[in-house]
Amino acid sequence: MHEMSLAVEILRIADEAAAEAGAGRVLRVGVGVGWLLQVEEQSLAFHLRAMRQDYPRLREAVFDLAEEAVRVRCRACGEETQQADWGFSCGSCGCRDVAVVTGDRLEVQDMEVLTDDV
């Protein structure tokens, strides 16, 4: 599936952000995996481990993948509620006219880095 392309993008973003922060080495990368994207976490982790070798700053980086639940905001009552399954509806009033607010992104959230102290 497309986990390999996703891994390439995550590595590119992490490497770019490390360069911007003046970091020579990245220790940990926190990645939020939106439930809606149906990403195979194991496959994504495999590709990240396999390809981090190509990025000198990321060679020792640990990738922390955390599933991000889907939350929706109701267009009728305005409440934001977490969803347990497909067929999203407002957890407060039951209305099905809702907008997804979280859970649809694959995001490089944060990193622990070592900056060279010159």
Partner: peptide, 10 residues
């Protein structure tokens, strides 16, 4: 080296 926490959100 200095440990640093970097927020990315991309």
């Amino acid at each position: 080296h200095q440990h640093q926490h970097v927020a990315v959100h991309r």
